[in-house]
Design a binder for these strands. Structure first.
Lengths: 128, 128
DNA sequence: CTTGCCCCTGACGTATGGGTCAGGGGTTAG
DNA sequence: CTAACCCCTGACCCATACGTCAGGGGCAAG
């Protein structure tokens, strides 16, 4: 199948597939004699996995770091437990991302508190 | 005083002052005959107010929207209460930013939850 | 006059995940 | 053959608040 159909099958756009390829999330597919990309069902499955991982908050760099294990995730959302090491790196990456999310949430929460307290200060009558 | 001293007095950099000027947060200052910017103490105070507002989470656009009232805030962090309308617009802007912060915090929190639940699913042994 | 520090403008870089052209060529049905 | 639709690459766009560089000029001291 060509890129448009593959993208539609994976629920995204041709641009996204080229973007994944450019960022080494997706291996360069075969090409027809005239240079058009040709995808198979396994590529579509892999794109689905990529989008799943991106949608839960991993970055492109995170996914690239575990690209070699992506095909292990194709059959299910996550395999039961592939043995020691098989999931260690992906889980470490996810943990790092979790920590980054926590840090960002905390930062915004502090900002929110400061702003809210400034507003309270501004709406109250003068006390001095 | 020239831009370097004014920036230092306000606790920032010349680049930031030019940036504020370019974005209509700071009025264009007088220039010497050779084109160098000349600032006074009121400009420095205004820059402090701008930085205060930015630091509590307002955006450049927010501050620009209430630039005409910035000088009212120069004397103190916030005046006691300037009468009906005097603070209405700034407070509305702050409230909008508060809402935006809340929305972003909620979004990241949902993302965090999804990622955390995926990790739990991945580390548990298969149940089926 | 020269050294050294400061200032000027304009332009590109930062991180994110693609969207949206622009200009050119492939593919397939009528 | 041609229309209509798809694909190719390369490049610019989004939002934030500046940092940093490049190339050229000002200003005060020795």
């Amino acid at each position: 199948m060509r890129i448009g159909d593959a993208a539609a099958a994976a629920g995204t756009t041709p641009r996204a597939l080229r973007f994944y390829e450019q960022n080494d999330l997706l291996p360069p597919p075969r090409r027809t004699a005239t240079g058009q990309r040709e995808y198979g069902p396994r590529d579509v499955a892999r794109v689905r996995v990529i989008r799943e991982l991106l949608s839960v908050g991993l970055t492109v760099a995170d996914v690239r770091d575990c690209r070699d294990r992506l095909d292990l995730l194709v059959e299910d959302t996550l395999p039961p437990y592939g043995g020691p090491g098989a999931c260690a790196r992906p889980l470490g990456i996810a943990q790092r991302r979790l920590d980054a999310l926590d840090a960002e949430i905390a930062r915004l929460t502090r900002l929110r508190e400061r702003l809210a307290s400034r507003m309270r200060a501004g709406t109250e009558p003068a006390r001095s």
